[in-house]
Write a protein that binds this DNA or RNA. Structure first.
Lengths: 209, 209, 209, 209
DNA sequence: CATGAATGAGCATTCATTCAT
DNA sequence: GATGAATGAATGCTCATTCAT
């Protein structure tokens, strides 16, 4: 129950209630998605987690897909600036990778803070792990960044796709495991991923944890 | 339509029918899952792809989840021997990695052969990409294999989990992209993954595609 | 309650039940349409008048529109042969008109027999009073028949449409009133309509009821 | 958008607003009824065609049925004086019929002027074609007028109901078709209906269009 | 065992109506 | 008196599952 419907206090303006309700729905959706997964979630599940009535849902979203997109886009919108900052500040390929993994894992931790403390199982879904236009844009950004170094490193452009895929695969899978550990150690995960991507197992052997 | 039910011709051997129907359902399920995805699939969708009647489904499976598990376990059961062979034949860490990625990508290609030729979109889901007990067993096997080398390479045991995760992340993501390319180039993907895992970008730069 | 669901007697074959259920739905729909009108009717209203379950409706029809069409087409299919017989037997324009009105009013009475005895208000809707392809075909038939005489009577073809409209208007409105009277006097209504159409008020004045 | 609500300009006379809003709702309702039909119309459809808010609707009407009745009654209230004038001026039965049909078809054209120019499909519904007390009053008036001549023409009183029904049936059906023609020829329709009612097909044959 | 129609719970969605502002 | 968001009953429809044949 997260809604604040029917706020009638001194500052309970219409607009505030409306925004609050929207947030209530989003919050409820996040929770339910995390708990039972997107596909299993019904609109009823979402509003049930709320003080609102069934019909009210449709004053804010047209479907659970739309809520999901809103959540995902919101995540993406929050993540992109971080990535941009990383790109702008990075002085070398190594730095870029290091900072990018750091940003992603930090972001992942932040996004799932609620889920982490409550122990919800599906949390990894509520990260950056979806196929939204916004998401694809992010992945393309990463790919373009990597392409630069791919050329520098004399790796044929054709495989920049594979390299991006691998980098993301590492991020995703490692991220899932990182979120399961207590305490959640962003630093360690980022270092691990960076070293692995740059130097492989060979590199990991050289600088043990 | 893959079922053999109601075969009453001269060679309509009754004895086979039962096993054949089970296979018919499994085949139909595989197709539908690949076409529209697991969650969108209904039991009706599956039996419709069959000569069988609705009720017959429940003579073989209790739910679509059970069919899915059966498919997944079947995949796992097919993949495990491959992995074991890889482990037994490998003379070094490098060889193991190389052979394991080769086996996985080959397996992926084989499993999705139908989907590949028909251009179905959800094929990646029908691979080894699920959380089944059988699946976990596979991942644990891999992890144990990697742990050996982790020790050898002087990487702390604590991170063998991360290493496994990363290796699997690379396999999954790279596998998805590999399946999208025409022709599907298993060799290339395996080489790429192996090199990256062993030596990282540094290694890739040394031996371009 | 008109359904015969779950007939399990000695002759209770599947096929029979199925046909019976279809008829049960049609009968129920006819009743409800007659009682509260098409638009006010819901699918639930229809099945409630039945022993069947909600979902069963959709085993037979895709929507209430489809039931309605089935009813209307059925009516049309029953009426057309009558009209054809009329056309074939008629030796003159007068005979055609007389027989056509007679056929229509008889048909109307028959169709609404249930409604007449139960006193339902919307019965006129369940006659031939709808816009179905089948219906239009009937009206076109009538128009073509009338066009023949229109030429014979030296009335410009352009107005055969008006003449048909007028003839039908008389039939409809008179039919409604006929159905309200007790006893329902088909003979009288047919004679009245025929005389009016042929000779107008002038004619009516000459041969009072 | 026909409402004048929220006019706050220099000439925004408050006093008019209330009456104006009522008219705005009526006008909007007329449009929507004409466009999609009464049953398909929702209160929301009506207010959406307005500058007003959803709740405001209920300050003026209790339901769409009430709006509809208001429209119908308004139509009736506009038509009755015409009919009275016809009755008062008519010197003979023929003149009465002629003038009455003329008045009705003219009225029909006027009422549907908007629909005619915009090509809306449901226009015929928005005429005099409903069962309202006001409507019945009109029909009774007509019937009483006709009864006079019925006696004069030596037609038994018992059938004045049928005669009225027939006259109205002709008017309705002919009216529908008249509205479909371009240009809408009121004169012609009135002459046709009059001749038919008075002398029937025999009469039509004598004075072709 | 196979069949396939019946079942009825459950979901998405709409909409008239209310009511705090 | 106007506003427009909230309400929740009502509807169409789907689908897993059962069961008589």
């Amino acid at each position: 129950m997260t809604s604040i419907a029917k706020v009638s206090g001194p500052d309970g303006k219409r607009a505030q209630t409306k925004a609050a309700n929207r947030q209530a729905i989003l919050a409820a959706a996040r929770q339910v998605f995390a708990r039972i997964g997107f596909d299993a979630t019904t609109v009823r599940d979402i509003i049930r987690e709320t003080d609102l009535a069934a019909g009210t849902f449709y004053n804010y979203f047209r479907s659970k897909e739309e809520v999901f997109e809103a959540i995902a886009n919101e995540s993406a919108r929050r993540f992109r600036p971080m990535l941009q900052m990383v790109r702008e500040k990075a002085q070398s390929f190594e730095e870029y990778i290091q900072a990018a993994y750091g940003a992603y894992f930090t972001f992942l931790q932040t996004e799932n803070e609620d889920a982490i403390s409550s122990g919800a199982p599906h949390m990894a879904l509520i990260g950056v792990r979806v196929d939204t236009p916004e998401m694809h844009a992010i992945f393309d950004e990463i790919r373009m960044d990597l392409e630069q170094v791919a050329q520098t490193a004399n790796i044929s452009l054709e495989d920049s796709e594979y390299l991006t895929a691998a980098a993301i695969g590492i991020a995703r899978e490692l991220g899932d495991h990182m979120l399961q550990r207590r305490p959640v150690d962003v630093e360690n995960a980022a270092r691990f991923a960076t070293t692995l991507l740059l130097d492989g197992v060979t590199g990991l052997a050289r600088q043990p944890n």
